Computed example of a mutant assay.
Amino acid sequence: MIEIMSQLNGQEKLKLPKNIRQIGLPEEKRKIYVEDYVVTYMNQLASEYSNRQSAAILLGFHAKQEDMQLTFINGAVGIPAAEVEEDQISFRSDLWEDIYSTMRKYFSNSEIVGWFLTRPGKSLGINEKITKIHVDQFPGNNKTLFLMDPLDREEAFFIYENGKLTRQQGYYIYYERNEDMQNYMVENRKGRGSEEVFEAAALNKPVNAPNYTKRKEKPKKKHRGPVLAGTVAAAMALVVVGMALANRLYLPDRLKMVSGGAKEEPLTIEVVEGAIEANNPAEKPLETFEDKKSSEDVAEPAVNVTATKRYTVRKGDTLVNISLGLYDDRDYVDIICEMNGIEDPDVIYEGMVLELP
């Protein structure tokens, strides 16, 4: 959780989140932190409208620590699809009224820090239309723009400074208990059950993430639809504890902890069939082909199929980030080494296929 550590010379000092994932190569003097549920929500928008543009308002706050400019994004409010056209958004007064009403309801402690826009099948470059929207609707330095191409699976952050939108080389995803965003996602995802929303968000959580705490149920809020209360509670517990396999909707194929700034791709586990054993090996052996041919009905014995999990090493991988990405625990490095006969855990190569516990 982001919190105030102390007050020095009249300036508040932030305690930066520890449970983070680095995407690309963030700037040294300017860092952007995006909470995981916000990332999940943006990728849901991109997935639902993969053939047209979608947009959202980004919420959070700005801070400065020593010589670093920090931007924290902890919320997002979707803009209705009807208002989004070709690199244009109709920001009428009634749209802003709806946005501010939603902010008061769910994100009362946040301010507008920028906006999000998808450009399916297009470049992530800035054109005059996009620049005009940013300057007119999100004035001031440090306001962010997050562009995403859901087809080519590319994305980029931009920050407005010195009269232009400047592309950033990377950012951080951080994990914390974010009830405001959870509540907004559950109550505003039309056509999706709350279990689906939480499951999609949970897929991006590292297992046993230390910052998670079980959320308290608020009795005054009731879930709509035919979902049983027990099922909803179980789904919410699943999200808050965080069962992360490899990733999210659209991002399931992208995010991976890497070193060296390679493009983010997923930790993909391949499950393959293994040995086949008869349930009762001591029983009568199988009939020969001739015996089977002469019989009209031959009962085949039941079999057990074991499975093996495999992972193909990609550029920039290390055993440490593979272990952390899949199990949130570096102790699995020794187990993976033993299973694959690796003597030096620092020496693996691209294309190498690892068996996993």
Rank of each mutant, 00 (worst) to 15 (best):
1 M>Y: 15
3 E>G: 13
5 M>L: 05
7 Q>V: 13
8 L>A: 10
14 L>V: 11
19 N>I: 12
23 I>A: 03
25 L>I: 15
29 K>P: 00
31 K>Q: 14
32 I>L: 08
40 T>N: 01
44 Q>T: 01
49 Y>H: 15
54 S>K: 00
57 I>V: 15
58 L>S: 10
63 A>T: 05
63 A>Q: 09
64 K>A: 10
80 P>A: 00
81 A>V: 04
83 E>W: 15
88 Q>D: 05
89 I>H: 02
91 F>P: 04
94 D>Q: 08
94 D>I: 06
94 D>W: 08
97 E>Y: 03
98 D>N: 11
102 T>Y: 05
103 M>I: 07
103 M>F: 12
105 K>S: 03
106 Y>I: 06
111 E>M: 02
114 G>F: 01
114 G>R: 01
117 L>Q: 07
119 R>A: 07
120 P>Q: 04
121 G>E: 07
122 K>L: 03
126 I>Q: 10
128 E>C: 08
133 I>M: 13
134 H>W: 10
135 V>W: 04
141 N>Y: 05
141 N>M: 08
143 K>E: 04
150 P>E: 03
153 R>Q: 06
166 T>F: 03
169 Q>S: 15
172 Y>W: 05
175 Y>W: 12
181 M>F: 08
182 Q>V: 14
195 E>T: 12
196 E>R: 00
196 E>G: 03
198 F>H: 04
200 A>T: 07
207 V>Y: 09
209 A>V: 14
214 K>E: 05
214 K>S: 13
219 P>Q: 13
220 K>W: 14
220 K>S: 13
221 K>I: 11
225 G>A: 09
228 L>C: 01
232 V>L: 01
233 A>R: 09
237 A>T: 09
240 V>R: 08
244 A>K: 03
250 Y>R: 13
253 D>K: 02
254 R>V: 02
257 M>L: 14
269 I>H: 09
269 I>G: 08
277 E>Y: 07
280 N>S: 15
280 N>W: 10
281 P>C: 06
282 A>P: 04
285 P>K: 12
287 E>I: 10
289 F>P: 00
290 E>S: 05
294 S>R: 15
296 E>T: 11
300 E>K: 03
305 V>H: 04
305 V>A: 06
306 T>C: 07
308 T>E: 13
308 T>R: 13
309 K>Y: 06
312 T>D: 11
313 V>M: 04
317 D>M: 09
318 T>Q: 06
323 S>R: 02
324 L>I: 02
328 D>Y: 11
336 I>D: 00
338 E>N: 15
340 N>D: 10
340 N>R: 12
348 I>Y: 14
355 E>L: 03
357 P>M: 04
